[in-house]
Amino acid sequence: KWEEIAERLREEFNINPEEAREAVEKAGGNEEEARRIVKK
């Protein structure tokens, strides 16, 4: 599940997989929260 979210974030925000994974981890697997983290 987290991998899927990280993949979507990576494609959408054009970030590297590591950044995407970190955002999802910080968000506890919550996609909306992960998006907010990435946008900062």
Rank of each mutant, 00 (worst) to 15 (best):
I37L: 13
R10G: 07
N14T: 06
E12W: 07
K1Y: 12
I5A: 04
E12Y: 08
A23D: 00
G28L: 13
R10T: 09
K1P: 11
P17R: 11
E22T: 10
A27V: 04
V24E: 01
E4K: 11
V38A: 11
E11D: 12
R35E: 03
E33L: 13
A34I: 01
A23R: 01
W2E: 05
G29D: 01
E19C: 09
A23M: 06
I5C: 02
A34H: 00
W2Y: 08
K1D: 13
E31T: 04
R8N: 05
A20I: 06
G28I: 08
R35S: 03
G29I: 01
W2H: 06
R35K: 08
N14A: 07
E25T: 11
K26W: 08
A27E: 01
E3T: 12
G28F: 15
E31C: 06
E32K: 08
N14L: 08
G28T: 06
E31P: 06
R10P: 01
A6H: 03
K40M: 15
E33W: 08
R36D: 08
N30V: 09
F13E: 03
E12Q: 07
N16Q: 11
K40G: 14
R8D: 02
A34G: 02
N16H: 10
P17M: 15
E11R: 15
R36G: 06
I15G: 03
R8Q: 05
R35N: 02
R36Q: 10
A20N: 02
P17W: 15
K40E: 15
E12L: 10
I5Y: 03
I37K: 04
G29W: 04
E25D: 09
R8M: 07
E31L: 14
K39M: 15
F13Y: 10
E18H: 11
P17G: 12
E25V: 13
E4Q: 13
K1H: 10
V24D: 00
E25Q: 11
E19G: 04
E33T: 09
R10C: 08
A23S: 04
R36V: 08
E31G: 03
I37P: 00
A20G: 02
E22K: 08
K40P: 07
E7W: 12
A34Q: 00
R8F: 03
E18V: 10
W2F: 08
K1E: 12
I5H: 01
E4Y: 10
R10L: 08
A20D: 01
I15S: 03
E18N: 10
I5Q: 03
R10A: 12
R35L: 05
I15C: 09
E11I: 15
R35W: 06
E3S: 13
A6R: 05
R10K: 07
E19I: 12
G29P: 01
R35P: 00
E32L: 09
E32I: 09
E7D: 12
N16G: 13
N14I: 04
P17F: 15
E22D: 13
I5R: 02
E12F: 07
I15F: 02
E11C: 13
E19N: 06
A20E: 01
R8K: 10
A6I: 15
E12A: 06
G28D: 11
E33Q: 09
E31A: 08
V38W: 04
E7R: 14
A6S: 07
K40S: 11
A27R: 00
E7V: 10
W2G: 04
K40F: 15
A34K: 00
R8P: 00
R21G: 04
V24F: 03
V38P: 02
N16W: 05
E19Y: 09
R36T: 09
K40D: 12
R36H: 08
R8A: 06
R10E: 06
A23V: 07
E3Y: 11
R21C: 03
R10M: 13
E3D: 11
E33S: 07
A23N: 01
F13A: 04
K1W: 12
V24N: 00
P17V: 13
L9W: 01
R35I: 08
N16S: 15
E18Y: 11
E19R: 07
V24C: 05
L9I: 10
E32C: 09
E33M: 11
K40A: 15
V24W: 04
R21T: 07
A6G: 04
A20Q: 01
G29F: 05
K39R: 14
N30Q: 07
K26L: 10
I5E: 02
N16V: 06
E7Q: 15
N14S: 12
R8L: 08
I15R: 02
E7P: 01
G29R: 02
A23L: 07
E12C: 06
K40W: 08
E25L: 14
K26P: 01
E25S: 11
K39N: 12
R10Q: 10
I5K: 02
V38G: 03
V24P: 00
K1F: 12
K26Y: 08
E18S: 11
E22W: 15
F13V: 03
E4D: 11
E32Q: 11
W2Q: 04
E3N: 12
N14D: 07
F13T: 04
A6M: 14
E4P: 05
N30Y: 05
R21D: 06
R10V: 12
P17A: 15
K1L: 14
E11N: 14
K39A: 14
E11F: 15
K1R: 08
V24H: 00
E31N: 03
A20S: 07
E25K: 12
G28N: 14
K39P: 03
K1V: 14
R21Q: 09
N30I: 10
A20F: 02
R21A: 10
E22G: 09
R36I: 10
R35M: 05
